[in-house]
Design a protein around this nucleic acid. Sequence first.
DNA 1: CGTTATACTTAACAGTGTTAAGTTAAATAA
DNA 2: TTATTTAACTTAACACTGTTAAGTATAACG
Lengths: 201, 201
Amino acid sequence: MGIKERKAREKEQLRQQILSAARELFVNEGYENVSMRKIASKIEYSPTTIYLYFKDKADLLDSVCQETLLNLLNTLEQLKSDISDPVERLKKSGRAYIAFGLKYPQDYKLTFVVRPQFQEGLRLQEGSIGKKVFDYLHEIVSECIRQQIFRQVDIDTTGQVMWSAVHGVTLLLIDFPDFPWTERDKLIDAVIHTTIAGLKA
Amino acid sequence: MGIKERKAREKEQLRQQILSAARELFVNEGYENVSMRKIASKIEYSPTTIYLYFKDKADLLDSVCQETLLNLLNTLEQLKSDISDPVERLKKSGRAYIAFGLKYPQDYKLTFVVRPQFQEGLRLQEGSIGKKVFDYLHEIVSECIRQQIFRQVDIDTTGQVMWSAVHGVTLLLIDFPDFPWTERDKLIDAVIHTTIAGLKA
DNA sequence: CGTTATACTTAACAGTGTTAAGTTAAATAA
DNA sequence: TTATTTAACTTAACACTGTTAAGTATAACG
């Protein structure tokens, strides 16, 4: 019964091949400028083969973004055990989140900006990776509140404020690279410091 | 010599017609889903006529966004005279900025998200309306610092932190409408309150 | 009245996402 | 082994896209 398994493995392999060809093209040329035919020719298959693995172009994008979210989640979770002080952990996580966005700016935009555009009614579903990323943040924030380091505003709001801050600065730095920003790290530090200071009692 | 003027007026009229048809379609159906032919048929001209008034589709988008920025600037500047306390003014302005984004979510996204995608190397040029919007914010912030209400970090950074916060929450609320946000106004208040508190000494 | 310039249109090119039908080769059953 | 079914992939086509070059009609000017 090894044949079926080999076949399944080969199918999965091609799926991954499509996925990574798509990511590379999306990132380098922009979602709009990448055609199914371009992806197909990169992997040396006919365009319609892709449709045997993905519903349509938006679905392909979605799968690419799921991978990105998983990478982001892993990046963040590597910091988890390190530090005991929750505020310090929140700072590190915030910086890591922003750093991730700036290291893979196109992936970040695809995930948090382009994808919502092409998937109306997109929701961070229960159990989804996106939800897990937010839950990670949520957990640290809730520890800060539990230890009465932060004001006793409700946890959800606090987490969402934090997310707004890091998301905002990340996107601005990506989208307006020619704006006369102050030194990059200084701005990032200021955003994180300001937000956390504002959340404290 | 009134003929030339009438002609110029008529030309400007058609330009405006194209512009508002484009805006309506972009906003309702999304930039990607609007074709030049669709815009043309809405104003009952041939598709190529548009190219006599705008360089290409991206240029048309850009012009639509310039209008949006002008609207935003006017909305903000109406608050200017009202209040003397700069912190109160900053709060009001922040709320007004977010409210604008949420009132015209598609226009906001077109301006601050879609446009940078289709105009690589977009910069907030000296004298541009976008620059003026930022300068408006900058001015209030600098008054807060001058009166020593805010920490003596440099003005630019402070303004950029503020922009990050309002931009971030605006986009998140637009892009993930199904996320379990806390009550909208509560979140907005929290973002503004947190950021300003964090900027204070 | 003839000429020139302006405003607009027609036709076409090379490309798009996607579907339906067709083909080939491998796995299964007789 | 041979026939049949299934899986994987391709070809051809449809209705569309942004954009350009060439053509046309009308209004203004000398």
